[in-house]
């Protein structure tokens, strides 16, 4: 199974961390429900063109945090994750996305006031579009 993970070339975030966070988001968002089998370390490292060491590190972190489970001889599966934990992942992802947008705007020399304006415009257009 191929996972919809996209690694960014322009991020300073280490690759294992990008993989870890995107997997968390897929689990919290319900795209990967409990019990879903995950690709083997070697298979995912081929798909993402990373080393197996990087995938192993991401999987170990996720296992430690309770998002996935590895059963000897059977493979790695999505674990049972509490709703509160899922909520936490979603909130922090939204925060992070908005923070990145603000940083981009600041790097183009927009002022905080201007950024607020843009933000309000985007929100308004969403309200009107009903999306």
């Amino acid at each position: 199974m191929e996972l919809p993970i996209r690694l960014s070339k322009s991020s300073r975030e280490p690759i294992y961390h990008q993989i870890e966070n995107q997997l968390k988001a897929l689990i919290a968002g319900g795209q990967l429900p409990e019990g879903t089998p995950l690709p083997s370390i070697r298979a995912l490292s081929k798909d993402l063109e990373t080393s197996a060491i990087t995938i192993r590190r991401a999987y170990q972190d996720l296992e430690y945090q309770g998002f996935i489970q590895t059963t000897q001889g059977k493979g790695t599966f999505v674990a049972q994750v509490e709703d509160s934990m899922k909520q936490q992942v979603k909130v922090s992802e939204v925060y992070q996305t908005i923070e990145n947008a603000v940083e981009t705007a600041l790097s183009y020399d927009y002022t905080i006031e201007q950024i607020k304006e843009i933000f309000t415009e985007v929100i308004d257009s969403h309200r009107k579009g009903g999306s």
């Binding site: 280490p14 080393s51 060491i53």
Partner: peptide, 8 residues
């Protein structure tokens, strides 16, 4: 080199 270290 470990590959990701090289890229990072």
């Amino acid at each position: 080199f470990e590959k990701e270290t090289l890229i990072d």
